[in-house]
Design a protein around this nucleic acid. Structure first.
Lengths: 200, 200, 200, 200
DNA sequence: CATGAATGAGCATTCATTCAT
DNA sequence: CATGAATGAATGCTCATTCAT
């Protein structure tokens, strides 16, 4: 629909000032949609953010979903998923920043909280399980904590890049970043031959 | 000073509703400090958050600072630092949640943005460098991206725990979490003997 | 427009208490216009006064303008103008009192200051010049000071009458007052035959 | 007393912004007297203005009182009184402007209203009566209206000069102005030989 | 006497939202 | 369907004033 694309014009605004710092009027100006018309189509101010973030989350969930649906090993799929998530994030820096900036509110929006988990966290958790099963990833003691950490590593890296400003080359940057992250979460920082409890 | 401790009474409020969702009046009630008195001491609503978060950040920076100042290897110090950061975070869940919930605003407060970096990011970056030097950590291709990711892994894990609600045993939980994280970032997820470009 | 007439309901309030002593809320009540609606149409509290006084000044300027536009001698026109100004003032005692009561503020409102001059002072100055030219008024040494004084004489007399309270018969009172003033400024107080430097 | 002189430092402030636009704090700063100390000596904010204006009014009343107390003819005393009033006004431009700017409030302060009449209006009215008695001024039809007008002429002229800014030579300017005013109110504007009902 | 600290009471202004057209 | 006009409800902040020392 047309509305959707126009609404994107407000993402930067919200990213910059937060939703509370953004008046409906500002959104109206930024999008060119009259205030009352926004209300005709949307529920209210929150709905604007919800709309935007739902979109982002769906994009991420979609891209990651494709990545993890392949027949590859869990390890390979994890690498692909990381790149996929970062790719979407870097392509939509304003949405990302809006998401972080209003993380509190996002958390308080029930639908979003669920979508947030589904988009970011669950796929990783799943891959961890899969990896342990197919042997492409080692079994960890606390899979949930590890999944959270991986999610954090990817997300914060992506956010950090998004905050630094729009990129000319989102996808190549995504590849670069995801390489660094995969390197970290797959091989760790311990020098070769010093891995703790793992040496057999 | 007295004010400081009274102000803590507002942290939960802000954590729960966000700063914009919290009226100065609410803060006055929660802290027992009359509205006008708040304004006599502080600049405005933002200053309350700033005050609180500055405090948190200083605690983290302090704890981490001590952790990384030891004579141990960088690797050991990294593990200690992870535990230290998580310890402080889990001990102050409301402050943490307030920080996440208003991350956008925190980012827009110049002083805080700097403190944020100093507390979370820089120590890690430093340890990465140290580790490469003393041989206790392997050299990575993109230290800055890796530092960001580690920072994300720790922070999101801590935040996540903080959001889930206050703990009875913050410190033991911190140990548990930091073990998982250290495990991840030191040894990685790759099964033994399959580490990528590292096998010599 | 409708707003204008409704706003008049606030004049007495402002006249009585001054603008600072009048809450927007009071104005809203007195005019029947909701507070927010006032703000929708006007800039703020000052704008209410400005609106009201601009109106008064325009009425005076208009009435005086007509009076001085005739083909009569400057002297006659001066008399007519005096009556005209007093007529408008006495017909709008509340506006007048509001003007006096907030003279300071009126002076600080740039537009008003200009309108004030244009309505009150300039016409008189002009007539002085005209009178010297057509011989109907004598030439004075310091026309500007004299114009100011005449302006003061008329205005304070009018104001004074306005402050004393609304009249039943504004126009007849205006005639009475303007006769006294014209008598003063045309013939002076010196007993016949004792006029200073004028006796030839 | 010391306080008095220090208080004068606030006159300009009040003249510029009006009393309501002037915070006690501003007055404290301008005078160097701490806020609480002002309250220790004075009743409140109004008292500051009252103090200042009472002073001005007393000065005027005093100067005019001396002028009209002489043994001269009423006409001469009137001329002297005009000069006296203008002299004081021009010497205290800030006080004058404060007076005009807050005329509304001044009017609402009972003591001041009385002092205002006593200082400005009554002496003139008295001289009019005296002049009619001693033959130095002609009898007018409406002495009260004429007195008001004369008062207006003098006052507005003085105010006008005060508003234009402090003078280097207040007293000579007072002489100049009072000459113009006396010229007007004594001899009128009618060309010689054309005085209305006066020609016998 | 003088004053730094504290605060009660007040209010202008903002803005999300509604509604008549 | 779309929107300009109108407004109810809310709140951050100010400031005169008080009071303990």
């Amino acid at each position: 629909m047309k509305l959707a694309s126009q609404l994107y014009g407000a993402a930067e605004l919200i990213a910059e000032r937060g939703l509370d710092g953004t008046k409906i009027e500002d959104i109206a100006e930024a999008t060119g949609i009259p205030k009352a018309t926004l209300y005709y189509h949307l529920e209210g101010k929150n709905a604007v953010l919800e709309f935007l973030l739902t979109d982002l989350l769906e994009m991420i969930a979609g891209a990651v979903g494709i990545a993890i649906a392949s027949a590859e090993s869990a390890r390979t799929r994890l690498e692909t998923a990381v790149t996929a998530q970062l790719g979407v994030m870097l392509e939509h820096p304003f949405l990302c920043r809006a998401l972080v900036g209003d993380l509190g509110r996002a958390t308080r929006l029930p639908d979003l909280a669920v979508a947030l988990r589904a988009a970011f966290f669950e796929p990783i958790e799943q891959l961890l399980t899969d990896g342990a099963a197919d042997g492409s990833l080692r079994q960890v003691t606390d899979p949930s904590a590890v999944a959270t950490s991986i999610f954090g590593a990817i997300t914060v890296a992506g956010l950090s890049a998004a905050v630094d400003g729009p990129l000319k080359e989102p996808s190549s940057e995504a590849v670069r970043l995801s390489a660094a992250i995969s390197d970290l979460i797959l091989d760790g920082l311990a020098p070769p031959g010093t891995r703790d409890a793992l040496e057999s």
